[in-house]
Design a protein around this nucleic acid. Structure first.
Lengths: 199, 199
DNA sequence: CACACAATTGAACAGCGTTCAATACTCCGC
DNA sequence: GCGGAGTATTGAACGCTGTTCAATTGTGTG
């Protein structure tokens, strides 16, 4: 076996990330293991640890790719040239659709918790703010009487709120009698929030 | 050893739940293990499996107690006899304070995911809606021109939203430059939402 | 006092993340 | 073409995990 040199370190990295994504999609976050990923790309665990610091590092890098995919998904679905309200509703619907379509992958985005409350790496924060940026842009049309900073803050509040609705629904923390759907809740949120924010 | 009969099954259950809570508080969700819990109450793993179906069952029951504790925490901190806005702000602040004070315990509440998208047991849903009910009560003073159902929905939307803000902050998904604090974000949310909801 | 019953144990199994000495290979200089 | 240097790769090993269940031990009853 050893030293086949068939793949560069970067190729192995990409193969491993692909394999990890497939495993997560098929078996969920908990189904992921170093031996499974290694087996799927025809290498052994040892090789994986040459390319990744540890399994958390691998998960973080998969999450990085998920953030990229999420950004593209949202960008492709935003409502162009419409008013703020419609733009935000489209964005919220797209986010919800992503979470429901790619649930295990989306779940992993938040199940990964840094130990000891350490911050996430810079490149990860950048990808996150790129996603948040979409909400800021959608809110911009209201910018005439609100400061740049206020818009940024409102965008983050809305984003976090839609995310919360999404989370509780998908994790079955809102399976209550007479409950609304995720989309309805997000619309109710945005409609009422914007009435306050516009005035 | 065997059959000491020192403790009833229910006593063992309570002792195990206490021990589990202490372990989670000290080492976090990932630090929890059957052997650790068993060791802490001077029994062996086998006994644990007489009392709990499996470790997920134990986690679920710890979460049940956490929901009870959270309910009491919130109830003790709500602002009595004030208007809706103040009441909701107090509730949000209390929720945020609980999450920040009892972070590992609060985290476990949502890190536990049912496999295959199965719903959570009824007794768990009951505890959840009891907590949500606090927001409904706080919103009630606006009930004159809104239906009971609308209030229920708005309460859940607000709850999920505050939860979302809390989650992203605590999991470091909003450590962005110039970011506001959790409380400020929740206040911005409630203030703007209520302006829309009241009108 | 012995028997039956049930509470309790702890070894066993398969799998986990992680490490690292040993191996197998490739490439370079001769 | 051959030997040696160096590195990519392996896979066994360690201590941990959840879970099961035959074996053991203590208690209460007849």
């Amino acid at each position: 076996m050893a030293r086949r040199s068939d793949h560069s370190r970067e190729e192995i990295r990409q193969m491993a990330l692909n394999a990890a994504e497939a495993i997560v999609a098929a078996e969920g976050y908990k189904g992921l293991s170093a031996r499974k990923v290694a087996g799927a790309i025809d290498y052994t665990v040892g090789t994986l640890y040459l390319v990744f610091e540890n399994l958390d590092d691998l998960v973080l890098q998969v999450n990085g790719r998920t953030l990229d995919a999420l950004y593209e998904w949202l960008r492709a679905r935003r409502a162009p040239g419409t008013d703020s309200r419609a733009g935000l509703l489209a964005l919220a619907d797209a986010y919800i659709a992503y979470a429901e379509t790619e649930t295990p992958r989306w779940n992993m985005l938040f199940e990964y918790v840094t130990e000891q409350g350490n911050a996430l790496p810079d490149w990860y924060q950048m990808k996150l703010s790129k996603v948040f940026g979409l909400a800021e842009v959608a809110l911009k049309p209201l910018a005439d009487h609100r400061s740049e900073e206020e818009i940024r803050q409102a965008a983050r509040v809305l984003w976090a709120s839609v995310h919360g609705i999404c989370t509780l629904k998908i994790r079955h923390r809102m399976d209550l009698a007479g409950g609304q759907g995720t989309g309805e809740m997000a619309h109710m949120l945005i409609d009422n929030f914007l009435q306050g924010f516009e005035s």
